[in-house]
Simulated scan of single mutants.
Amino acid sequence: MAPARTPVLRHLLSCQTRTLRASNQRRWAQVHDVRFLATTQQPRSVLERYRDKLDRKAREEGHADIDSLKAAYADKIKALRQDAVAAPLTTTTGPAPSSQPEAASQQQQQPPPVAAAASHPAPPKSTSSASPTGIKPLSEILDLQKAAALPLEELTAIWRLRHAANPNSLCAVIPAATFATMNALARAHPQFVLPVPHPQQGGAEMHFLQWTWDAPTRSATVLFTRLAEYKARGEFAAPHTTATHYYGDELATSAAAAAGGGKGGVVLMQGAVVADRGVKVEEARWLVMCLQRFYGGWDGVESRERAEERRRLLEWFGKGDARFSVEKLMEEAERMG
Rank of each mutant, 00 (worst) to 15 (best):
K125H: 14
S131D: 14
E154G: 00
L170A: 03
C171F: 08
A130M: 05
E153R: 10
V114I: 09
A172I: 00
Q110R: 11
C171D: 13
L152P: 04
P97I: 14
Q107F: 03
P137Y: 11
V114E: 13
A177M: 00
S119Y: 09
Q109N: 12
P97L: 06
E140G: 08
P112H: 04
F179V: 02
P175E: 11
E153F: 02
D143S: 13
P97G: 06
S98H: 02
E153A: 14
A172R: 15
A104Q: 11
P97S: 04
A96D: 07
L142E: 14
A180H: 05
S169F: 00
P167M: 01
S169A: 15
V173R: 06
P124M: 03
L144E: 10
K136P: 00
C171T: 12
P113S: 10
Q145D: 10
F179E: 04
L185R: 12
P97V: 10
R187A: 10
N168P: 00
A186T: 09
Q106G: 02
S105C: 07
E140Y: 02
M182S: 01
P95K: 13
C171G: 07
T181D: 01
V173T: 15
Q107Y: 00
A116K: 06
E154Y: 01
T178K: 07
L138M: 13
A148R: 13
L144P: 03
L170F: 15
L161E: 14
S129P: 00
V173E: 01
L142K: 10
W159R: 09
A122W: 09
S129G: 06
D143P: 05
S98C: 04
P112F: 07
L152M: 01
M182D: 02
P151R: 01
L155Q: 13
K125M: 05
L152R: 10
P151K: 01
A96Y: 07
A172Y: 06
L185S: 08
A180I: 03
A186H: 00
Q107A: 13
A122C: 13
S128D: 11
S119K: 14
L144Q: 09
A122D: 07
P137C: 07
T127R: 13
L152T: 06
L150V: 08
S129H: 11
N166W: 03
T156F: 00
Q110V: 09
A157S: 14
Q100D: 03
A96T: 12
A177T: 15
T181E: 08
A177V: 11
I158R: 15
L155D: 04
A176C: 03
P167R: 13
R160Q: 15
K125T: 06
P167A: 09
S126K: 14
P175S: 04
S99C: 12
P111N: 01
I135G: 07
T127Y: 11
M182F: 05
V173L: 15
P167L: 04
K146I: 08
A118K: 12
P167K: 08
K136V: 05
L170T: 05
W159G: 02
L150H: 14
A164Q: 15
A180Y: 02
A164W: 02
S129V: 12
R162M: 13
S126T: 11
Q100F: 05
P151C: 03
L150M: 15
L138F: 09
A176N: 03
A176Q: 05
A115F: 01
